[in-house]
Simulated assay, not measured.
Amino acid sequence: MTAEVIDKQAVAASFSRAATTYDQVAELQRSVGTNLLERLPKDLQAERLVDLGCGTGYFTRALNARFQQPVLGLDIAEGMLRYARSQGPASCAWVTADAEALPLRSDSQQLLFSSLALQWCPDLGQALREAHRVLQAGGHMVFNTLVDGTLQELRDAWQAVDGYVHVNRFMPLAQLQQILASAGFTHWSCEVETHVLHYPQLSALTHELKALGAHNLNAGRPGGLTGRARLRALTSAYESFRQSAGLPATYQVAQIILHKGHQA
């Protein structure tokens, strides 16, 4: 996402409000985060590691279990951190932080893990420069992010109703690859997974997005209540996508591994 279309304060506030409901509806988030975790090199050892954009701490706890080391959970949403802290473990630490200005010493970390968080950064390149700075030589950053084509059905349905931006914009894959190539890492890989969820009714999807804190966060989004007539029109437009399994919602997830090599 770009600085013109994202509001960091809105992101922090929205995810803070969603802290107590997030895990109840985060099946996709757990799935793609688990896929990311499984992409880590099997022989990787790390003693200093960070869960960047840790949210409720689900993967902070998974990283703690895998590496048997304390994990630092960082997130911009204080409400998420309060919830994560209440879930433990006591050996992990939780700090409010912005991925574009990490409160960490240079060359101090061996692994940065981030699942479905960095798409909310106005400047992904700056976040990756910060990641490169804080990683030790030989360290890894692994993250996933949503790319263009995510929630395309919802975007197209709204386009049939009015001209406003109702769905979060996500970065085109080619732009993401350009940013990765220029981030300063020695090696990187990027693979895209397509996930299609199905819902019995449109309201089930919109309620889930709200419970996740991931509903429309674009700057310049339409204000005020959505009129009933427009909602009926949206429901009708979305019905054109219905499949035998229900109404589809497509997510395009880029799974990325970055390696900071040793200088010659």
Rank of each mutant, 00 (worst) to 15 (best):
Met1Lys: 06
Ala3Phe: 08
Val11Glu: 12
Val11Thr: 10
Ser14Ile: 08
Phe15Tyr: 15
Ser16Cys: 12
Ser16Ala: 08
Arg17Leu: 12
Ala18Thr: 07
Ala18Arg: 04
Ala18Ser: 12
Ala19Tyr: 07
Tyr22Val: 02
Leu28Ile: 03
Ser31His: 15
Asn35Pro: 05
Leu36Asn: 00
Leu37Asn: 03
Leu37Asp: 04
Arg39Phe: 10
Leu44Gln: 11
Val50Asn: 05
Gly53Trp: 03
Gly55Phe: 04
Gly55Val: 09
Tyr58Leu: 13
Phe59Arg: 03
Phe59Asn: 03
Ala62Thr: 09
Gln69Ile: 07
Gln69Arg: 15
Leu72Ala: 06
Leu74Phe: 05
Ile76Pro: 03
Ala77His: 06
Met80Ala: 05
Ala84Leu: 05
Gln87Asn: 02
Gly88Gln: 09
Gly88Asn: 08
Val95Pro: 01
Val95Trp: 13
Ala99Glu: 11
Ala101Lys: 14
Leu102Ile: 08
Leu104Val: 04
Leu111Tyr: 08
Ser115Asp: 02
Ser115Glu: 11
Gln119Trp: 03
Cys121Tyr: 04
Leu124His: 03
Gln126Ala: 15
Ala131Arg: 00
His132Trp: 12
His132Arg: 14
Arg133Gln: 12
Met141Arg: 00
Phe143Ser: 11
Val147Thr: 13
Val147Met: 02
Val147Ser: 02
Gly149Ile: 05
Glu153Gln: 14
Asp162Asn: 12
Tyr164Trp: 12
Val165Leu: 13
His166Trp: 01
Val167Pro: 07
Arg169Met: 13
Met171Pro: 00
Ile179Asn: 01
Leu180Arg: 11
Ser182Met: 08
Phe185Glu: 03
Thr186Arg: 10
Trp188Met: 00
Trp188Lys: 00
Val192Ile: 14
Glu193Ile: 09
Val196Ile: 10
His198Ala: 06
Tyr199Ile: 00
Gln201Ile: 01
Gln201Cys: 02
Ser203Ile: 02
Ala204His: 11
Ala214Gly: 08
His215Gly: 07
His215Cys: 02
Leu217Asp: 07
Asn218Met: 12
Ala219Cys: 13
Gly220Arg: 03
Ala229Lys: 14
Arg230Thr: 12
Arg230Asn: 14
Tyr238Lys: 05
Arg242Trp: 01
Leu247Gln: 00
Pro248Thr: 09
Gln252Glu: 14
Gln252Asp: 09
Val253Phe: 10
Ile257Trp: 03
Gly261Asn: 06
His262Ile: 04
Gln263Gly: 12
